[in-house]
Write a protein that binds this DNA or RNA. Sequence first.
DNA 1: CGGTCATATGAACCTAGGAGTATATACCTG
DNA 2: CAGGTATATACTCCTAGGTTCATATGACCG
Lengths: 110, 110
Amino acid sequence: MESTFAIIAEPNRRAILGLLASSERSVGEIEQELRMPQTSVSKHLRVLREAGFVEARPDAQRRVYRIRPEPFMEVDEWLAPFRRFWSSHVDALERHLDRMAKAPKNRRTR
Amino acid sequence: MESTFAIIAEPNRRAILGLLASSERSVGEIEQELRMPQTSVSKHLRVLREAGFVEARPDAQRRVYRIRPEPFMEVDEWLAPFRRFWSSHVDALERHLDRMAKAPKNRRTR
DNA sequence: CGGTCATATGAACCTAGGAGTATATACCTG
DNA sequence: CAGGTATATACTCCTAGGTTCATATGACCG
């Protein structure tokens, strides 16, 4: 069940990745910035590490984590077949028309 | 837990989306092509529909499902900050500088 | 109408995995 | 060496959500 997608389904893990996107950080820094228990941070980092999202570099007693690109690329590739549904500017128009069409009618179940 | 990412964490749902990427399909068609129980297909479609990944068009007693772009765009946007880690080699420099900035003092490697 | 397709919904069950607590490991400093 | 700091791991508990089985809803056709 260790799919790339399952990994990023977890909000705290996405938060961690979000931090690391701007710059590498130690466990303690992540802990403080996200105000989440250290043990939780460590566990999420482990999952992220084993899935290849991040890698750790030891700095004395610290571990400094940083992003690795591969799993993100995988998500990007998964997205490819769906890009045709919005990537061209034809779709901007389409979306516009869609929105117009929605006012009179109603859509969706909930 | 209704995040876009939680939705696509489920392998069967990704399979359904994969089918719909090429063309719209009825529930029965999905059921056959994926060889998965109808009730399961219906439930996954419900989740996908409520999250905006697909929409249904009634065709007599059938429901024909097709892709909607918005949630995919959301994933694409989430990916944006991470693109610099692989999209060009300019970013290799950027990453390097980033690392330097984080370590003004003595650094040790082992 | 009655039957039968096509799809949706409900309920019970089961498992994965996140959270919390406690503790282990490793490294630094005095 | 002792004591503190930084991070990892083990264990238990708990809940979200996927699967299955049974049935409901609704549209078509004879």
